[in-house]
Design a protein around this nucleic acid. Sequence first.
DNA 1: GAGGGGCAAATTTTT
DNA 2: TTTGCCCCTC
Length: 734
Amino acid sequence: MSVDLLSDLTPIQREAVECTQGPLLVLAGAGSGKTRVITRRIAFLLQQGIRASNILAITFTNKASGEMRHRVETISPGNRVFVSTFHSLGARLLRQYADRLGIDKNFTIYDTDDRNKLVKQALEALNMDDVKFTPERIGGAISKAKNQLQTPKDFERTANDFLSQTVAKVYYGYEKRLRAANAMDFDDLLYLPALALRHNEELRAELDARFRYVLIDEYQDTNSAQYEIARRLSINYPNLCVVGDPDQNVYRWRGSDITNILNFERDFPGARVITLEQNFRSTQAVIAAANSLIAHNKLRKKKSLITENPGGEPVRILSFENGLDEAEGVVIRIKKTIEEKKHRYRDHAIFVRINALTRSLESAFIKHGVPFQIVKGLAFFERKENRDVLAYLRLIVNPADTVSFYRVVNEPTRGIGKTSLDRLTAYAESHEIGPMSAAGQVAKITDIKGKAATGLKDFARIITDLRASLELPPHEVIRLVLDKSGYRTMLKDSTDDDDADRLANIEELITAAKQFHDEDNNRTIGDFLEQIALASDVDNWDESADRVSVMTLHAAKGLEFPVVYMMATEQGLLPHERSLGKEEDMEEERRLCFVGITRAMKELYLCHSRVREFRGQFLYAVPSMFLDELPRDVERVDGMGNRNTARTAMEDWRTRTAAATLDRPKSPPIAMGSVSTDGEYVNGQVVQHDEYGIGQITDVSGYGALKRVKVRFPAAGEKTFVANKVKMKIVKRN
DNA sequence: GAGGGGCAAATTTTT
DNA sequence: TTTGCCCCTC
């Protein structure tokens, strides 16, 4: 039997599977058979007599969890191993141990949007809403603090500038509101379990003993809170196996900390380290491109991927005239290879750096009748109508959920305006109750009368009534919500054409809820809401459909495709303009590009175009510097199939831009991400200052040595500089 | 209090 | 280009 599990593995992979005791770090290069190793390892543990309930496997997405669970069950039938993402695990632990942790297990999970709304409420309550920092910014800072396990008190202690001091104040109020709303933000799902494991030794020991064997995939992308969880679960039973690749760390911006993987040996004494560097996925051409690119990262331990695969097609750089040509050119190319029966649609993936780039692709696909799917799972649930319906559901499950309350209390309109809501809020705060409870006793609120009072009373009644149906299957509850809230009538009676679509979308939501329930009859609305809240973009990706997949580079992590196209490999997009000039960010952009490249099994195309439309403006685009970091033998091709050129992408661009400039003297070219050194500052330009970062010029005055430039920075506010002396790069002309 | 018009700002990446 | 916010009118 053990032969079955190990016989088709390489000796080094086999070692990673068989080394079951003690801490183990598997440095797994892209395409080195990582998933296979993890799956086999779990199966091997089971075969060694380890109970399934003693194994915990953490993956990066719910989809990956599902697949791994399925694979393990295929190899070792009847074994239900706990495979989950860190966030799902956190939610599960918080609900399971709610009593011991002193929380209500019916909490709502707040997404980033909800979080920002609550931050805004906290700001308003503190009379700080005139502060110049946006709720998004403050919310982001709070999120970062939680990722680093800083409580409001910890944070306050280290707050030494105006921004952090502001954040510290809001952090307290925000936490108070979150708890009052019986809600958890994304970060809480890691932060609270991590702190519980740190401070509650009894619980920690219990969970450590329950999860004796812990496996963590994509370990390079874990943050401090996740590290804490992993560590605390591996003290009495230090059988912690982490798998990752420092070159694929692409979530630094979200708090992931590369030192988690780099310091593993130090943090877990006696750890074994196994390095998988043979790539089984890609051709030599693709691997050469990946190695050549990533070698340009300086803050990195040198390593290379090797492969015994065939050389394969050369990697190609496709140049296009504009973004529309690019989108169409790629779609046409794909269509052609299908007609030649070389590939199927599903063999193709198109990667983009930012979601906005999927639009032109969408039209091109429709125009040419090529089946495609844009892998952005949440987009559907983020539609206003669906968010509204979900808010009703959340409120039914958890009436304390203030964000949902304010979202739907007047949707459809019930004659409740801002003034009445302000009064309701004031009443609720002074009586230390939630707005939902306050609405229930609106008769006692003397300054709310007439339509508003009736509306609030009706609303309270609707929610109370609906709560009686809490136990019904999710799709039936949604139907009741639609009928009782008046939402259906509102859309039905509307004269707006779009409202018919909205109703159709809600019907689709109902179908999704029904499917969810059909898969498992025990599932409740709460489960439905949790699944939506914790879904990642790729979770809804249908990999069996014969369609071209379009997704962001981030979503592509962990996947592979025979043919890969990367769109808009241009300065300002990849690397993204927000990373320009910041070395660590630039290296992350390069890793992102590396991730994209290493998804390709057989063919890889890197596209860029000369002109890119941006916010309704046409800008000249510089080919990505990363293209010049590829091996000499990549082919440079005119994307529309006209001619080949041996020039580098950079040279190509320079020549063409020069020509274009002559063609159109009246509209000077604007180069995204290009750098001007002539110091010709103009009002409105976006500049990068060495110390203050990105800012925008608000005023230019004087001449020569007296010339002054005033720049507004998001953090530092307005500063005035001597134009001839200040060191600033012009990031974008206007 | 609702709704429409006009103007400004905005676009990384995501659990 | 699109979205969201503010202000004004009914």
